Each structure stands twice: as structure tokens, then as C-alpha cells.
Simulated assay, not measured.
Amino acid sequence: MRPEPDATKLVKLLEKAGKNAWSFPLIKFLPGKDLHKLPKIIRKLNAGSLVFILSKQVIFYISLFIKKKIYWPKNINYYAIGKNTALEMYKFTGIQPKYPKTHETSEMLIKFFELKSISKKQALILKGNRSRSVLSNFLKIRKTNISFCQCYKRIFKQHITSYDIEKWKIIGIKTLVVTSSDILKRLFFLFSSTNNKKWLLKCNILVVSERLAKLAFKIGWKTVKIAKNANNKTLFKEILSNNF
């Protein structure tokens, strides 16, 4: 269920290990509406400001669509949602953001965040169009001056055909890999018939946080496993170790 190109890469890993796997992303990404503003926004940040990078898609679209080189000040504190995002930022800018070593979620980023005096500091959140408000709410409570830059946007798949569902059943799909709450809710919504929903809820589901696991149980899944990270290497190991 995860977006491309990660979905296809994970499928190839599983097929090499002898597993039947199928890529079926429910979300695709497009450039965000604020990309052209980013160079100017960065220039206005003061020393000691905070920059939060909430997805590796942020870096992908910045590098792809901003032709003019951005100056990334080194006297600013950079934070990434997780290891993969931090690595992409380093490859693109040479700057190594700090990041939580556990789950790649806003909650973990907040726990990891160094809670020094941040009142009245500038904070820039680089995000998508449907990013959660956990981090921004946290910063607002601490009276941080927040600005946002929508670097990419998510577009949801509008339907799943009966042919798609039958194909999943024929090839023996029994485990679903879901990496966001939007994908999880969209998946359940797109399975319209009662019989298909029953089949869906009998599948194992692999998610990437406690929050997603709770949501999956609430919707009706019975067998829910949690991977430590959302990267393909971790998901691959989790699928094999659970004998999905």
C-alpha cells in the first residue's frame, strides 16, 4: 500500500525471498504549492532557528523543482522525522539533521527534540499538504514563531476495482503493509462491499507505529504487527520474521 518507488522496491525484495507480493500504492505525490517560496523563506531565518523536515519527499521535490541553489545556513538547527529523511537531506545539502533513532513519527520527533528554550524562536516546517498537526501544536504551545512550506502534496487513489481485489485473492495476498493513517483509512474506505471488507480484515497488517496499530485494531483488524521503522529493509525483515 505504500507509495512508489518504495512499494516496487519492497516487492522485489520479497519476490527474491520467494514471497508472492504485489505493489498497489494508494497515494501518489506531486510538487507542493509553496516550493517556489522556499529560497526566500530560508533566507529570512535567524541564527538558532529550527527547521523540521517531515518526509524524504520534501527533499525529493526541493531537489527536483528548485533550480536555483538554496543556501542552507549552518547556524540553524535541523531535525528530520527519521533516518532516511536525514540521509536524503545530507546527500542533497551536506547538512546532517538530528533525528529520532526509533519510530519515524511526529511523537518520537517531539520526544527526541531538545527541549531547551525555544520561546519566540523561528521554526520552519517542511511538509506535505496533509501532514499531521502534532509538531506544530507542540511548537505553538511553546510560543515558537512557526512558518510552513508545503513541498509536496498527496493525491489519493479514487477506487479499487473488483478485478484488483480478485487478483489479490488469487495470488494469495494475506499481509498488507501500511505506512500512514491516511493510507489505512483510505484502504478500508475503498473496500465497499461487506464481503470484501470481511476478507480485508482477515489479512495480517504491518504498520510502523503504535498509533497506526491502535487505529487498525479500532477499524477491525485482528492481526496487527508493528515495524520499528518505515524503511524497506526493516519492513522486509519484519515480514520474514513473522512468516507472513
Rank of each mutant, 00 (worst) to 15 (best):
Y152D: 01
Y163A: 09
F138E: 06
W168I: 05
I160Q: 10
R142K: 11
Q150D: 11
S162I: 06
N137D: 07
F148Y: 15
S136M: 02
K157H: 08
I146R: 08
F138S: 04
I155F: 00
N137Y: 06
I141A: 11
D164Q: 09
S136C: 00
K153L: 08
I165P: 10
R154L: 03
D164R: 02
Y152T: 03
T144V: 14
W168T: 08
K167R: 15
T161I: 08
F156E: 02
T161D: 10
I155E: 01
Y152W: 05
S136V: 13
K169S: 14
S162F: 10
C151G: 05
W168R: 00
C149N: 10
Y152H: 00
Y163H: 13
Y152G: 00
Y163R: 12
F138N: 08
Q158S: 14
N137E: 01
Y152F: 11
K143F: 06
I146N: 07
S162K: 14
F148A: 03
I160L: 13
K153S: 09
K167Q: 14
R142H: 10
I165Y: 07
I141H: 12
D164Y: 08
N145C: 02
C151I: 03
C149L: 05
R142W: 02
K169C: 10
I155D: 00
E166M: 14
K140N: 13
T161L: 08
Y163D: 11
F138A: 02
Q158Y: 11
N137K: 03
W168H: 06
I155R: 01
I170M: 15
Y152I: 02
Y163F: 12
S136Y: 01
K140W: 07
Q150A: 02
E166S: 15
R154H: 03
K157Y: 06
K167Y: 15
K140I: 00
S162E: 10
I155Y: 01
I141T: 08
Y152S: 06
W168K: 08
I146T: 05
K167F: 12
S162W: 02
I155V: 04
H159M: 09
H159L: 06
K143R: 13
D164L: 04
T161Q: 06
L139H: 11
K169L: 13
K140R: 14
F156P: 04
F156L: 05
F148T: 04
Q150K: 05
C149I: 04
F138Q: 02
